[in-house]
């Protein structure tokens, strides 16, 4: 039996490749504190043009009994186009991040990216506030230089269990952010306090748009404040991933769209989403 003929190729050229898979040389891979490490890699031309909020799918090596199969999604923590380098700030938890932690400088690591949609800034040059905890700080960090360059004042509220675990404070300050640290041990990280801080910042004219990552409770607090004050905001979300590019539908999360609850793929429709549409997890 013969098939119906399929259409002829179009004369218009197809879109150029956007993200790619490549081996990157590791420049350094050092512990930052008891839980986190910072890995800096050299990347080919173009890859360092990645946007804050985008991520890479990292192929973690096999090591003895540790045989990670999926790639691990990691936000871009630092972008240095001049040096052609990118950094990842990662928490060593399971199989993949443990083998990633073993890699020495000059070894290579296979990366796939940059992937996903990065943060967007409000058009009116409004001052912005970043709200992050844990791994969320890694995702948020490159937004500081990006927003400063675009003329936005930046305040960052960094949340952690203890003052020692507040990561990247210097990174945020050096990039031009006003940093406010809140911690569990000092009793300052409770959502009520963070909400009060946000209202205070708004009263001082320092909160025109709100960005959040790394904590469900902080996201809900940010949503309450943004709704009350009618602010633009974005939330960067996490979900387990396989393909990283929108094909497998394993990374869905629920979102509010009008009166409906819809599923969206964190990898390709995110990981950055409109703040008020994200639902708690």
């Amino acid at each position: 039996m013969q098939a119906t003929p399929h259409p002829l190729p179009s004369p218009t050229p197809l879109a150029p490749p956007r993200a790619g898979e490549f081996d990157a040389r590791i420049v350094s891979n050092e512990p930052v504190n008891a839980e986190y490490r910072l890995m800096t890699v050299e990347v080919p031309d173009g890859a360092a043009e990645a946007r804050p909020g985008q991520f890479f799918q990292i192929l973690c090596p096999h090591s003895g009994a540790l045989q990670p199969f999926f790639r691990r999604p990691m936000s871009i923590y630092r972008i240095d186009p001049a040096a052609g380098q990118l950094s990842f700030l990662y928490k060593v938890t399971g199989t993949g991040t443990r083998t990633m932690a073993e890699l020495e400088p000059d070894a290579t690591i296979n990366l796939f990216g940059p992937l996903g949609n990065g943060f967007t800034l409000p058009e009116d040059g409004a001052p912005i506030v970043l709200l992050g905890r844990g791994v969320g700080l890694a995702t948020m960090a490159p937004l500081v230089p990006f927003a400063r360059k675009a003329g936005h004042a930046v305040t960052a509220i960094l949340s952690a269990r203890t003052p020692e675990l507040v990561m990247s404070e210097a990174e945020f300050v050096d990039a031009g952010a006003n940093v406010l640290a809140v911690t569990d041990s000092q009793g300052t990280s409770a959502v009520e306090n963070v909400e009060d801080m946000l209202h205070g910042l708004h009263a001082e004219g320092r909160l025109g748009a709100l960005y959040v990552c790394g904590s469900n409770r902080l996201m809900l607090a940010a949503q309450r404040v943004a709704r009350r004050l009618g602010l633009f905001g974005e939330a960067a979300l996490e979900q387990q991933m396989a393909c990283g590019v929108g094909m497998c539908f394993c990374c869905v999360r629920p979102f509010r769209q009008g009166d409906e609850i819809v599923h969206r793929r964190v990898c390709s429709e995110g990981p950055v989403f409109p703040l008020l549409e994200a639902l708690e997890w």
Binding site: Q67, F69, Q240, A242, C248, F249, C250, V252
Partner: peptide
């Protein structure tokens, strides 16, 4: 809609979905 998450899990030499 599809199934609840987690929808995938890695196992040695492959994955479940």
């Amino acid at each position: 809609q599809g199934n609840p998450t987690p929808r995938v899990s890695e196992v040695p030499g492959g994955m479940l979905n």
